[in-house]
Amino acid sequence: MNSVPLSAYLVLALILFCIGLYGALTKRNAVIVLISIELMLNAVNINLVAFSKLGTAPSISGQIFTLFTITVAAVEAAVGLAILMSLYNRRKTVNVDEMDQLKH
């Protein structure tokens, strides 16, 4: 039947999640931070789909969950970029380490 074990998918998702987390915490450009978060969400989606086929109770629900996650990810990207545009109009910067108005 299925020759690829469940743990292989989970380890791949873990690696992608760690890469996304590292990118989100180290990059300066806010757009790259946003897209790193998309990568993390994608890793979670792999987990959901893998469990929907290879988990203890395989069913279609995992794929439905993934659809909702993708929707929320798209919404998050759109609103995040809108906030970024608004911020850029005000401060003329997209670097996260210069967005420190609340500290002063």
Binding site: N29, V31, I35, A78, L84, Y88
Partner: peptide, 12 residues
């Protein structure tokens, strides 16, 4: 594409 727009529209 929306991220590319975000990059192009801001000065990076």
């Amino acid at each position: 594409i929306i991220m590319l727009f975000g990059i192009m529209l801001t000065r990076h």
